[in-house]
């Protein structure tokens, strides 16, 4: 019986490890879809810069493409940054406020 129990226990341990990493078929495929959506939409959105400057657009798109593809599993990183913790939410809120006010206030007066 001892050996049998050991085998069963080892199976249970292996199973625990597998279950903890809950990468099911569905979650992997959805993460993949989200990844592709993110990259493609960001690149398409970057084309809008052509209304200001063509050269800048080329540089930004090449840079953005390189940046996005080299940091490839983007979705786990984004998900980690957007979880429900208060600190991260407040951080991004204040960051947005800072950027918004800076750009609107000084961007207009010093151009």
């Amino acid at each position: 019986m001892g050996l049998y129990d050991m085998i069963v226990n080892s199976f249970k341990e292996v199973r625990k490890k597998v279950v903890k990493d809950s990468a099911t078929n569905e979650s992997v495929s959805s993460a993949l879809a989200a990844e592709l959506t993110l990259i493609s939409t960001l690149l398409i959105a970057a084309i809008m810069l052509r209304h200001f400057n063509i050269t800048l657009t080329v540089v930004v798109i090449l840079g953005l493409g390189l940046l996005l593809t080299t940091n490839m599993p983007l979705i786990p990183k984004i998900k980690r940054e957007q979880d429900d913790s208060l600190e991260k939410m407040v951080f991004y809120a204040i960051l947005t406020l800072g950027i918004l006010i800076t750009v609107i206030y000084w961007g207009q007066t010093n151009v």
């Binding site: 959805s30 993460a31 989200a34 959506t37 993110l38 939409t41 960001l42 984004i78 957007q82």
Partner: peptide, 11 residues
Amino acid sequence: TMILGVTMAII
């Protein structure tokens, strides 16, 4: 909003 909303929704 569109990009983040939808990509976060999928996962």
